[in-house]
């Protein structure tokens, strides 16, 4: 599955001590926890986005618990990889990933979007340690990541750079400015992941403003295009490994996902893009996810 041989994996582990490289089964279990976090924090806050965070949970877990080289205790660790969600609205999954990985206590998730918490509605460098660049205006993140990759190039630093984008977000013109830039400068340490859930606020992406054929668009911009089932962990890991192994071009992973994945009544329904579940809906969702609001909120508050 992974193109890295055991020997090179050992070598890489030595050079990238902040990379967890968890196996697929463990990651799938973590992704389940992340979905439980997302529903619980949204139920508590009664504000925020459900759909995109749930579709991003699996590749999010793979990024944070397998792929990226970071030290949550030292968010500014010089050796770190850079990760950035250009889709700032998916803060429920971003904060869950960060807390589960140890950037801040899990109990902070219970103050999502609250006046007395740090977890802003959209990620804020000023408020949350580990958020390196604020986001929330779509279309800007890939450019930010190009800047980070250029800095690494100037410093001859092996830093890898991961940028998560939305599929609706592909309608932003600035993304294609950045796509052109990254290919022009052959930023092969850059890996973009697109949450290809086929939905956006007003409906189906293809109806709102069609983006197909997205793979061909990126290919024609001179990117290495990789597709994967964004809910199948081995597939996601293979895609990330392929991106890491590819030289001379930036890579983009089209992660085919389902908006609201993991909660039956949310799945594939664009109405869940930007709203939280009501408390009874949250209970139903958490039941499907094998827990309850009481149990899961207690877990969060205890940590």
């Amino acid at each position: 599955m992974s193109p890295t041989t055991p020997a090179s994996a050992a070598l890489e582990a030595a050079h990238r001590p902040g990379r967890l490289a968890w196996p697929a089964e463990q990651l799938a279990a973590k992704a389940l926890d992340i979905r439980r976090d997302i529903i619980t924090l949204l139920a508590k806050a009664q504000t925020g986005h459900s759909g995109g965070p749930l579709s991003s949970a699996d590749f999010g877990a793979a990024l944070f618990f397998h792929e990226i080289n970071v030290d949550p205790a030292r968010p500014d660790w010089p050796e770190r990889d850079f990760w950035h969600f250009s889709i700032g609205h998916v803060t429920p999954v971003i904060y869950s990933l960060m807390a589960e990985r140890g950037y801040f206590p899990l109990k902070d998730l219970m103050k999502f979007r609250a006046f007395d918490g740090h977890a802003q509605g959209h990620p804020s460098r000023h408020d949350t340690p580990g958020i390196e660049v604020s986001a929330g205006s779509l279309g800007q993140g890939l450019s930010v990541c190009c800047g980070v990759a250029m800095a690494a190039r100037i410093d001859k630093h092996p830093r890898r750079v991961y940028c998560v984008m939305g599929d609706g977000e592909q309608q932003e013109g600035q993304i294609w400015e950045a796509a052109m830039f990254a290919a022009h400068y052959r930023l092969d340490q850059l890996c973009a992941v697109i949450d290809y859930n086929r939905k956006q606020i007003d409906g189906d992406v293809q109806d709102i403003m069609g983006i197909k054929p997205l793979d061909q668009k990126w290919r024609s911009f001179n990117w290495n295009v990789i597709e994967c089932d964004g809910h199948a962990m081995p597939d996601i890991l293979a895609a990330l490994a392929a991106a890491r192994a590819h030289k001379g071009q930036p890579s983009v992973i089209l992660a085919h996902t389902v908006m609201g994945q993991g909660v039956s009544y949310m799945a594939d329904d664009f109405h869940w893009h930007g709203k939280p579940p009501k408390m009874d809906q949250a209970e139903a969702a958490l039941k499907e996810l094998g827990t309850s609001y009481a149990d899961w909120s207690a877990r969060l508050l205890a940590n």
Partner: peptide, 15 residues
């Protein structure tokens, strides 16, 4: 690509 440039500068500064 001025919008791109502004954000690339942001990424450079973040590093």
């Amino acid at each position: 690509a001025e919008q791109n440039m502004m954000c690339i500068a942001g990424g450079l500064a973040a590093m």
